[in-house]
């Protein structure tokens, strides 16, 4: 049995990769993808924790995370479509109207 800490470590690794991708890429699609990677990592951490103590709660939590991810993706992609319509590009560097 893989030790619990290793499982969490893997989840952390995945989270970190997702984070790096979020910070590095300018393309909105890639940023959303990175967010998905991060959420997936988090969800896996939940599942691993649930399995550690043989409780089903972890998987229930996983379900909720999944739900949230789905909802978020739906709205985010709608926004992405809007952005594409407005700016003709999905480069987030164009979204700087909040500049002082």
């Amino acid at each position: 049995m893989i030790p619990y800490e290793i499982q969490i470590l893997v989840a952390a690794f995945l989270f970190a990769i997702g984070l790096i991708g979020l910070l590095t890429r300018r393309n909105l699609i890639f940023m959303l993808m990175s967010v998905e990677i991060m959420m997936n990592a988090g969800a896996f951490a939940f599942v691993a924790s649930g399995a550690r103590w043989t409780q089903a709660d972890g998987q229930v939590m996983f379900l909720f995370v999944l739900t949230v991810a789905a909802a978020e993706v739906a709205v985010a992609l709608a926004l992405l479509i809007l952005m594409h319509k407005h700016f003709k590009t999905v480069d987030t560097n164009q979204l700087n109207s909040l500049k002082n």
């Binding site: 893989i2 499982q7 893997v10 995945l14 997936n40 990592a41 969800a43 896996f44 599942v47 691993a48 649930g50 399995a51 043989t54 972890g58 998987q59 996983f62 379900l63 999944l66």
Partner: peptide
């Protein structure tokens, strides 16, 4: 990741993934 979840004994989560 789905495979990972299956191997630690959470098949439901794996399938859902």
């Amino acid at each position: 990741v789905s495979m990972m979840m299956y191997t630690i004994g959470a098949p439901y989560a794996a399938i859902l993934e």
